[in-house]
Amino acid sequence: MSTGVIILIIVVAILLIAGVASISMYNRFVSQRNLVAESWRQIDVELKRRYDLIPNLIETVKAFASHERQVFESVIAARSNAVNVHDAPGRTPEAQAHAEQQLSGSLGRLFALAESYPTLQSNQNFLNLQNEMTDTEDRIAAGRRFYNGNVRALNTRVESFPANIIANMFGFKKEQYFELDDIGARDSVRADFSSLTGRGPSDREQYRQPSGTGVPPQAEAQPQIEAQPQLPPQFGTSAPGQYVEAPHDRLGGAGQPPQNPPTAP
């Protein structure tokens, strides 16, 4: 076999290997791009659920605090802006994140307002809506982490060699992250009403009463005092620090009448 034939075989083998590798990298790019799109659609579902809950939430709060018009208008305007951004053609995750951040801030003020009305906090419809909103916020946060993880993997491959050659050839580009920078605005929606719903607060759902907010004293959380066991009426009560006979002592043990105390000789 001549040298020319050997060189030709080597060149063909290299081209075949490069072609297989290129096809593999291209298919992986397609898979990652589809995964990013799918994870973004999951966020969309939860955002729409959030938008649907807000009108009912506003109406419920308005029934107890109808004079707080400025707060309601702020939430309505922020929701309308978020919906418009969501439905706009060619929207970007960055623009959507900015709109959602504004909406979260408005919702935080609405829930802070609710804490000033004890009767509202005990309203079952409000509690149900608050729980659904908290669940939706959790789902959005989980979807955001999943989406950003997929975006990170795709962007890393777009910038890495030799995958970046395939990315440039076939137009695979970096995707935007979906980031909500104002953590306080998101957490304010997760106001804790565990004392009313019977659920214990989680680490991130601690009730916090801001000072100097003009909250009526009756709205403030009161310390819980553990109930003391009470004796039956027939055994009477005692003053603080005074010994009280237990029922079994007064019955003289196993159902026997009390013995007369010994008399002095």
Rank of each mutant, 00 (worst) to 15 (best):
A153K: 10
A239P: 01
D187S: 11
A221Y: 03
R190H: 03
P201S: 07
N150P: 02
V151P: 07
S80L: 13
L231F: 14
I23Q: 12
L120N: 12
Q124E: 02
T213Q: 11
L15Y: 13
P247Y: 11
I6E: 13
G143D: 08
Q242F: 00
Q256W: 02
E38Y: 10
R50C: 05
A163Y: 14
I7F: 14
Q259A: 10
P118I: 04
N164P: 05
R157Q: 04
A88R: 05
M1L: 15
S74E: 15
F72D: 08
Q96K: 10
S106H: 03
V75P: 13
A95W: 15
F170I: 01
E137R: 14
F161K: 04
V30K: 03
N27M: 12
I54E: 05
A264L: 01
Y117K: 08
Q42I: 01
N81F: 14
I43L: 15
E132Q: 15
V5T: 15
E115G: 09
F64Q: 11
N164R: 14
D52N: 14
T263K: 11
I9R: 11
R91M: 09
N131D: 12
S211T: 08
I23Y: 10
S74M: 10
G212E: 08
V45A: 09
V20M: 12
Y147R: 11
L196M: 10
V244K: 09
E132F: 06
G143T: 03
A191R: 15
S104N: 12
R41E: 15
P247G: 08
